[in-house]
């Protein structure tokens, strides 16, 4: 159950060379939104765009293909995409909203749809929620520390950041590569990630991530009825090249392993919060 409910799991990548040129992996999120925008399924999407500071993401509303393309790629820092979920239906005026987010942001979204305490007229305007796999996230200052201090690289010279194969990778514009063992990154993770029990965005319509598939491809879980419908249309429109998930290495086995690792570790931490902090005191448990 660590992989959540899904109707199908596929290895996929975008068929659009322009999207793939600067995408993190298979360009799934950008391609899905570009297709959905084209087909009128969404009016626009909340994405993690690029702010003025290098590799600092900022939630943005993309209503054109150009704006979507500008937001390609992963930025390993917190992008509070949910902060725009009401505004996108107001000053941006969208009736059919796309949103991309980490597993916790998908949880926030679904809670917000079921308990719209401060989200008036938002719940029924969510047309497509795309989740991304996530082990943990860093505050921007943590990324700064990792890249500039540990990696001895100026952030403005970095062309791509990546986490994979057990390492944190820094690629520079001039072709240098710096790798940091994940061990040094752990202390910069934000604490809120350590109570998270979701690795593969179980509550998204469609969730995707690099783990499980070869370089340049992504693993895709199609989860909800809405997601299934949109995925089928996107395939019919030729937006994606796909392979059966069991035909690729390392496949779902690795996804399951990592998901298990994360959930087990964090479950343990949650339990320790109830007993190991203070005497007869417990830290608050967010899950009821």
């Amino acid at each position: 159950m660590v992989l959540g409910n899904y109707k199908q799991a596929i290895a996929a990548r975008s068929t659009d060379p322009e999207i793939l040129r600067k995408s993190q992996d298979g360009g799934i999120v950008t391609q899905l939104f570009a297709y959905a925008l084209d087909a009128g399924i969404i009016d626009g999407a909340i994405v993690a765009g690029q702010s003025e500071e290098p590799f600092k993401p900022e939630p943005m509303v993309a209503t054109t293909r150009e704006e979507l393309l500008a937001a390609r790629g992963t930025r390993y820092a917190i992008s509070p995409n949910m902060s725009l979920i009401k505004e996108v239906t107001r000053s941006y005026g969208l009736d059919k909203v796309g949103v991309v987010g980490t597993p916790c942001q998908m949880q926030a979204l679904r809670k917000g749809q079921l308990y719209p305490i401060g989200l008036r007229d938002v719940a029924d305007k969510i047309a497509l929620a795309v989740g991304i796999f996530c082990m943990e996230n860093f505050p921007y200052q943590g990324i700064l520390q990792l890249v500039e201090d540990h990696g001895a690289t100026a952030l403005e010279n970095v062309s791509k950041l990546d986490i994979g194969k057990g390492k944190f990778w820094i690629y520079t514009e001039r072709g240098a590569t710096v790798q940091l063992p994940l061990k040094v990154t752990h202390k910069y993770e934000q604490p809120g990630c350590h109570v998270c029990l979701d690795y593969v965005a179980n509550l998204a319509d469609i969730s995707t991530g690099s783990v499980g598939t070869p370089d340049g491809w992504s693993t895709v879980f199609v989860r909800s009825g809405k997601g299934d419908d949109i995925w089928a249309k996107a395939i019919a429109a030729g937006a994606f090249e796909t392979k059966p998930i069991d035909s690729v290495k390392p496949g779902l086995e690795l996804v399951t392993k990592l998901a298990n690792d994360k959930v087990t570790k964090n479950q343990k931490y949650l339990e320790s919060r109830a007993t190991e902090y203070g005497v007869g005191k417990a830290l608050r448990n967010p899950y009821i």
């Binding site: 939630p59 917190i78 509070p80 995409n81 949910m82 902060s83 725009l84 979920i85 009401k86 505004e87 987010g101 980490t102 916790c104 942001q105 926030a108 809670k111 917000g112 305490i117 401060g118 989200l119 996230n137 505050p139 934000q190 604490p191 809120g192 990630c193 350590h194 109570v195 998270c196 830290l283 608050r284 967010p286």
Partner: peptide, 18 residues
């Protein structure tokens, strides 16, 4: 109840709800 308790992960729901 959020940040002090080590639970905030920066989703932005609070900002949207205010």
């Amino acid at each position: 109840q959020g940040i002090n308790q080590g639970l905030c992960m920066g989703c932005g729901s609070c900002a949207a709800a205010c």
